[in-house]
Amino acid sequence: MTQVLLPPELVTRLERLHLVTRKVFHGRFKGERRSRRKGQSVEFADYRDYVPGDDLRFIDWNGYARLDRLYLKLFLEEEDIHFYVLLDASESMNFGEPTKLQWAVRLAAALGFVGLVRGDRVSVQALRGSSVEASPVLRGRVSVPRLVEFLDQLAPGGPTELAPALKRFCLANSGKGIVVLISDLLDKSGYQDALRTLLAREFDIYVVHVLSQEELDPDLSGDLRLLDAEDADAAEVTVTAGLLRRYRQTVENFRNAARVFCTRRGLAYLGTDNTAAVEDVVLRHLRQRGLVQ
């Protein structure tokens, strides 16, 4: 399964990447990431006056020799980062070829791999209905098999209820970090409240909006009774060319509205579909949006 989720050629290319955040967070362990805190790294940051109690190892003795004053050299601290991948595992994600969930799992594996190999703390959380199925917090390259194992066993089910699920996630994860939400956003009660919940925290949020080809350009015609896979809600329509045209326009409007919503609030938005190559998404689109470097 590892082979399927993370093919060797992809792994090779992912190993060169590392996660980047537009915000600098406190990590719990020393990692490979600059921190706002000044600390023990090799990168010089600033000087400040010595006050009693400071670590004598950081006094700039050369400066003292020239100026006869004690200055402390400050270095940037390098920290690890919390990286959360929120996977929408509702029933609606179980459509398309490959299914949106399968696609989302691959993307989560790739991003998680990048985080793990760079020493970040990675957690994948599957949103199913209002519940959240969270993987253990993983760290280090050694955790890659566990990540894959968790992702592998994910099965779709339940309705999409982003708002309660994300609220639950926020309550359980008070820390800061990068959140990548992979979802189709097909929440009948709306995705806006859910994203607002995330915004309340200081997460660096990326929304990957994935829709299947069947949703973007449905191959339907005639008098149909459309059954919702999640809640068995039915819609009776007579599909005509005109109706399809209008549907496509609606989908387009839906995606535009999501993008506008995210952009205005500082969320990075990526609209894609289940046929896009994961490698391409990671190496190109997410790199453009600054998630990986």
Partner: peptide, 25 residues
Amino acid sequence: KLRRREVEVPSTYLWLRMIEDMHVN
């Protein structure tokens, strides 16, 4: 005669949004 063919879709959300101004029934 309107025995509509049943088709399962991921969500009727978008369809309903499209036809929210018309009550299909």
